[in-house]
Design a protein around this nucleic acid. Structure first.
Lengths: 137, 137
DNA sequence: ATTTGTGCAAATCGTTTGCATCTGA
DNA sequence: TCAGATGCAAACGATTTGCACAAAT
């Protein structure tokens, strides 16, 4: 069974037209387990894989996927946005030295005793980021 | 008692020369309780207050203050960096609608059951960000 | 045939840097 | 005096946008 067909179905479910580029990018992102990609990194992978896409399309695609629930955007480091293929509830380690984002499996981390959000506000999400570094820094 | 003198002392303690601009900026930042400022916002406040500083100096100053423990940098939203005048241990609410950062008093939020950091790594800091929005979005 | 997506290059935004000029100790 | 600070404008890197062209339904 061709993976491409699965991706097409997946895109249709997300109400996105399965165009050449979207299918190719979806395969790159979703065929290798959970990943945390920056636009630039995905762009490089696409070129390596011989997929012709422009950087603008990478950004468009990443945002469309995010809006339609296929990806989750993570802002950890000002300057770069990471897109997480794991949209489930979980938190992250951020490796300061290599600027990599690593999943912390769910089941870990409990956040307790949250104060009330400000008047008229509701919680949209709770992000826990544990910054780590090489212990000989 | 002139506030300026206090700020000068404070800068000296942090091993920074109390220059005209640094003293002025420190006063703007530290005289009004805990604040979360972006470089641009501080720049605007400085101009309003009639303090002549360039944006480059604002950035330099903000980073020097951060390196010397007077401020803490927060990356919440890719794209903008916020500088927190509260360097103590605490977490934040991020108001998605207005893009404001608000302190969550310490004593709240307990993070439990953290997994081991990856091999050879040590925890540098743990950040909890609770994103909130208007409940009629 | 329409609507939606794509590519390119130019534009934007926050931030940084190079360098000549000033200023505080 | 003279290391360290400042201002300006140009450089930057990530991201967005405008618009003509191409592809999907």
């Amino acid at each position: 069974m061709n993976q491409t067909l699965d991706m097409e179905a997946r895109l249709r479910e997300a109400k996105l037209r399965p165009t050449r580029q979207r299918v190719a990018l979806a395969e790159l992102m979703f065929s290798k387990g959970d990943r945390h990609l920056s636009a630039e990194k995905l762009y490089d992978e696409a070129r390596e894989a011989g997929v012709a896409v422009s950087l603008a399309t990478i950004y468009n695609t990443l945002h469309q996927f995010t809006d339609n629930g296929l990806l989750r955007a993570i802002s950890i480091d000002s300057s770069k946005t990471y897109f997480d293929t794991n949209t489930g509830n979980h938190h992250h380690f951020f490796l300061e030295d290599s600027e990599e984002v690593v999943d912390m499996p769910d089941g870990y981390v409990t956040v307790g005793n949250l104060p009330e959000p400000p008047e008229g506000m509701e919680i949209s999400s709770v992000d826990v980021i544990v910054r780590v570094r090489n212990n000989r820094s």
